[in-house]
């Protein structure tokens, strides 16, 4: 059944229709950063994340919309729907296989892009586990509160900490604030550049060591600092191949496609093709270009060399996964009800 059934039919069509647009998008992605005005002659890899996401976006749109168009049971009153409805078995009458085919086609098209493109765009070859450190207590640092403590995950050997604080107005004259980093009572790194403006990134590199707590202490200066969530990150020592990261990003990019097609599957019981197409395209747009995680964050992480595998990424993808699964379950129930 699989060899000549909906899976193969939709897979072949998606590959035929999406290959050229995806390749063109990949070519545009390669060219795009080279057309950007670079700061100091260098483009930060993270800034190229939208370019990396472009081929994935195109592949997702083409595969999704072709699938809805090809398989006649995704919408009401499609030509030949009776024909397929009668012949096709399975809980979704071929729609499940069609969705699987669209996802497979997208993965086949985007996996090579995921493995090759980040390197061309300047992503690091190695990725590190990155943890956002959470402030214990008040995240403000000033003369009255000269130390802020951050908690780090246990059992990880760290080698770098990056800080990006918000600068507040001082009471007196303005003097940039100088910081020191300590862990377990001993200094991690000193001699950091003084913080004089909001968003200024400080990176402290130190001999690899394990710790579960970091203290950021005020050494000198008058500018009060505020550390919002995500302002302090630690990088582990473990070097991992960034291609694994990119492969996971390609898998993550399937989530919006799955959710859009699952919802189309459900909406198709009561709506005609234009409505179903609009629903699928809108959902894809919101979950990709709209910045809903984990799509955008995954490509940013690949470009920055931040290791993606972990609970946080799974948790970020969970709402889309749940929405898609729920839509498929409801579509199965609706199919049973409507048949009666």
């Amino acid at each position: 059944m699989t060899g000549r059934g909906p899976f193969r039919i939709v897979l072949r069509d998606c590959l035929a229709k999406a290959t050229v647009p995806t390749l063109l998008a990949a070519a545009a992605a390669v060219a795009w950063p080279r057309l950007q005005p670079a700061t100091g002659g260098v483009v930060a890899p993270g800034a190229s994340a939208p370019a990396l996401a472009l081929p994935f976006l195109i592949a997702a749109f083409v595969c999704s919309l072709r699938t809805v168009r090809i398989w006649p049971l995704f919408a009401l009153q499609r030509p030949g729907a009776d024909f397929v409805q009668r012949l096709q078995g399975g809980p979704w009458r071929g729609r499940g296989a069609a969705i699987a085919a669209a996802l497979t086609a997208q993965l086949l098209l985007t996996m090579p892009v995921a493995l090759l493109l980040p390197g061309w765009l300047g992503a690091p070859a190695l990725a590190h586990t990155t943890a956002t450190l959470v402030a214990v207590g008040d995240p403000r640092l000033d003369r009255g509160h000269p130390q802020v403590t951050f908690r780090a995950p246990a059992d990880v050997t760290w080698q770098r900490i990056a800080l990006r604080a918000v600068v507040m107005l001082p009471d007196g004259p303005v003097r940039p604030t100088r910081l020191s980093l300590q862990a377990g009572g001993s200094e991690l790194a000193g001699g950091l550049a003084p913080v004089g403006e909001t968003g200024q990134r400080l990176v402290a590199t130190f001999p690899p060591r394990q710790f579960t707590q970091v203290e950021v202490a005020l050494v000198d200066g008058t500018l009060p600092l505020y550390f919002p969530p995500g302002a302090v990150e630690a990088l582990s020592i473990e070097d991992r191949d960034n291609r694994g990261n990119a492969a996971l990003a390609a898998l993550i990019a399937l989530l919006p496609t799955f959710t859009a097609l699952a919802l189309a599957c459900l909406v198709g019981f009561v709506a005609a093709l234009p409505t179903v197409t609009t629903v699928a395209a809108s959902l894809l747009f919101v979950t990709t270009v709209g910045g809903v995680e984990p799509f955008g964050g995954a490509f940013r992480a690949v470009m920055r060399g931040e290791w993606l595998f972990g609970w946080e990424v799974f948790a970020a993808g969970l709402p889309l996964l749940t929405l898609g699964s729920l839509a498929m379950a409801l579509a199965m129930v609706a199919r049973t009800r409507l048949r009666a």
Binding site: I9, I70, P79, G80, V84
Partner: peptide, 8 residues
């Protein structure tokens, strides 16, 4: 009506 899967 018309047949489905007209790309085949």
């Amino acid at each position: 009506g018309p047949l489905p899967l007209d790309t085949l």
